[in-house]
């Protein structure tokens, strides 16, 4: 599975990659997108407000023309850092009750709808209210994401959460140039990443 993913990554970069992609951080990628240098910016729905802010546009970029989709192949990345809440194991009964009451409050349908309108996102198991749908239709990008999510949409864990933090921000990104410039095959990339992971054990 990982080798297959790395093969797609290598192919995507070699075929359509931005010339400054090697070593680029998120701000570099975002800047090139807002400056009309790249066609795709992998990101979450929380970025919609920024895309629609004309003060960030350059080189003829027009945020209103941006479309949102689950790419490639209708796959969405679940990002627990944005939507998930955790409760510590060592809390008192009273704290637990308070936390549960808070969770119940923030997960009321109207709260979820308000959150989606403010931050973006989808709630596949929620039947949206008419008022929400009406508000949603005012924001094209939000509507794109809400409409394009369907029962076939696959939700996968964020790669960052699937491996050690240091492996993701360190070795993985350090090895990418070798994968991108073809010096390493996807198999070799996976092998080196495995070696780095074993060194952490």
């Amino acid at each position: 599975m990982f080798i297959e993913a790395f093969t797609i990554l290598q192919k995507l970069f070699q075929k359509n990659g931005w010339s400054g992609a090697i070593g680029a951080t998120y701000p570099d990628a975002a800047n090139s997108f807002y400056a009309n240098q790249t066609a795709i910016l992998p990101d979450g729905t929380w970025i919609i407000a920024k895309i629609l802010d004309p003060t960030d546009w350059a080189n003829g970029f027009d945020g209103t023309k941006v479309v949102g989709d689950y790419y490639p192949e209708n796959v969405a990345i679940a990002n627990p850092y944005v939507y998930d809440w955790m409760m510590s194991a060592n809390i008192t009964k009273e704290e637990e009750e308070l936390a549960l009451a808070f969770f119940e409050f923030i997960n009321r349908p109207e709260e979820i709808e308000a959150f989606i309108l403010a931050e973006g996102g989808i709630a596949p198991n929620l039947e949206y209210s008419e008022n929400f749908k009406q508000e949603l239709s005012k924001n094209k990008l939000l509507t794109d994401f809400a409409n394009n999510a369907n029962p076939d949409t696959k939700y996968v864990p964020y790669f960052h959460d699937a491996i050690n933090a240091s492996l993701f921000t360190g070795d993985f990104s350090n090895f990418l140039p070798y994968l991108y410039n073809g010096q390493w095959t996807p198999e070799k990339f996976a092998e080196e990443l495995t070696k780095a992971a074993k060194a952490l054990q």
Binding site: G23, S166, T169, N174, P177
Partner: peptide, 21 residues
């Protein structure tokens, strides 16, 4: 800059990555 890429690892980078884990 490199974040350790291109064989530029050093001890503080190892240290911080260990803390991240």
């Amino acid at each position: 800059t490199t974040n350790g890429a291109g064989n530029t690892m050093n001890l503080p980078v190892i240290l911080v990555r260990s803390i991240m884990d």
